[in-house]
Structures are given as C-alpha cells and as structure tokens.
C-alpha cells in the first residue's frame, strides 16, 4: 500500500470513529435530558457552566459505561486530537519500510516534537 493510501486510511478511520462517538454523545444528552448530573439547560448554556476540566480521564472511562453523553463527546474529541498524532507515527513507519531514510528521520523529528508538546510542555507551563 502506498503512503498516501495508508495516511488517508488512518485519517478516515479517526474521523469516522470520532464522529460516531460525538453523535452518540449528543443523542444521549438529548435522550437523557442532560448528562453527568447536569440538566440539558446547564450543558447547553453558551456562557459555560459545564467545562471540560470537570471531566478527568478516569471519569470519562467510567462515564462511557454509564452511558453519560458528555463523556462520549469528550472521548470523540480525544480520538479526533489523537488522529494527527497517529498519522505522523504511521508515516515514520511507512517511510522506514520504504527505506526513505531522509523522510523517516524528518517524520521521526515531527513525532518527537509532538510528544514534547503534548506531554512535557503543559507541565513546564504549570510552574
């Protein structure tokens, strides 16, 4: 499989999975008239009563099994954010497999940059 097809496949999979979680989450919020103990009115408030900071990773994973709509939406968003990261990782692997050393190195640098941005920078900013 050519690199374009591999990357396109990764992106489509991420987009569809994310879309399914977000749509399911919205359906659950409307069906239950709210989510995670908040009413629909509170969740839909544009001036923001419910922020994502109220939802930890552990809470999201529990909320999925409890069919809480907001947790489904946030899981969909996590999948969406992870998609470009996965596509960079896949390009490293495909370029390495194709023995394109220059581009295997370039994509590896981008992947390392992303890992630093996601896992190290937020910690540095907290201090």
């Amino acid at each position: 499989m050519e690199i374009n097809d591999t990357i396109s496949y990764v992106l489509i999979t991420g987009v569809v999975a994310s879309l399914l979680f977000v749509v399911a989450g919205v359906a659950l919020i409307f069906a239950n008239n709210g989510s995670n103990g908040f009413t629909l009115g509170e969740i839909a408030n544009g001036h923001v009563v419910v922020g994502q900071s109220m939802f930890s990773a552990a809470e999201i994973s529990q909320g999925i099994f409890a069919l809480q709509g907001a947790d489904f939406v946030l899981l969909g968003l996590i999948v969406l954010i992870a998609t470009p990261v996965v596509r960079v990782l896949m390009s490293v692997l495909v370029f390495a497999y194709e023995r394109n050393r220059l581009y295997a190195a370039i994509t590896l640098i981008v992947f390392v940059d992303l890992m630093v941005a996601v896992f190290i920078v937020p910690g540095l900013l907290a201090h």
């Binding site: 919020i29 969740i43 923001v48 922020g51 900071s53 941005a117």
Partner: peptide, 22 residues
C-alpha cells in the same frame, strides 16, 4: 494537536458547544 494539550489541561473545551461544531 501540538497546541491542544495546553488547552485540554486548562479545560477550555465545552462538550455541548464543541460537539455540533465538530
């Protein structure tokens, strides 16, 4: 994606506003 980690940590992502936009 590189910038989103900071925003996620700050908690500036509202599920009901973001869902229809996405």
């Amino acid at each position: 994606a590189a910038g989103s980690a900071v925003y996620w940590a700050l908690g500036y992502i509202q599920p009901f506003v973001t869902a229809p936009v996405v």
